[in-house]
Amino acid sequence: MLSTDDDILGQAEAWAKAGKGVAVATVVETWGSAPRPVGSHLVIDEDGSFLGSVSGGCVEGEVVTEALDVIGTGQAKLLEFGVADETAWRAGLSCGGRIAVYVEKVG
C-alpha cells in the first residue's frame, strides 16, 4: 500500500510510544530537480525499519544510517546530498538535483 503522511508520522509516534528510539528525517530544502518535495518525511526506528521517503530511493540508505547515529547520540543533523557533493559517488541523486535533509530524534 502507498503510505501517506498520516501513516508515516503516525508510525513514528507509534514506535516512540512503544519505547523505541525513533528519528524523523525531513526534506528541508531542494535545489534543481528533486524527486520529493520540501516537507517530505522518512521515519526510522532503532532497528533500521523505515517508512516514507526523502528521494526516489537514491539516498534513503544513507539517511537511515545517519538516523541510527542520531538516535544514538540525540544530536540532530543536517545532511546534504547532490551531484556537487562528493557523497554523490556513494549516494547521489540520479536526477542531478540537490537536497538538504534534517534528521532529528523523537523524544
Binding site: 498520516d6 508520522l9 513514528a12 516512540a16 510510544k17 524523523v24 523523537v106
Partner: peptide
Amino acid sequence: MRLALLSALNAARSD
C-alpha cells in the same frame, strides 16, 4: 522533536 509535539501534530491532522 519532543514526542508530545509529534503527538500534537498527528492529533491536529486526524481532527
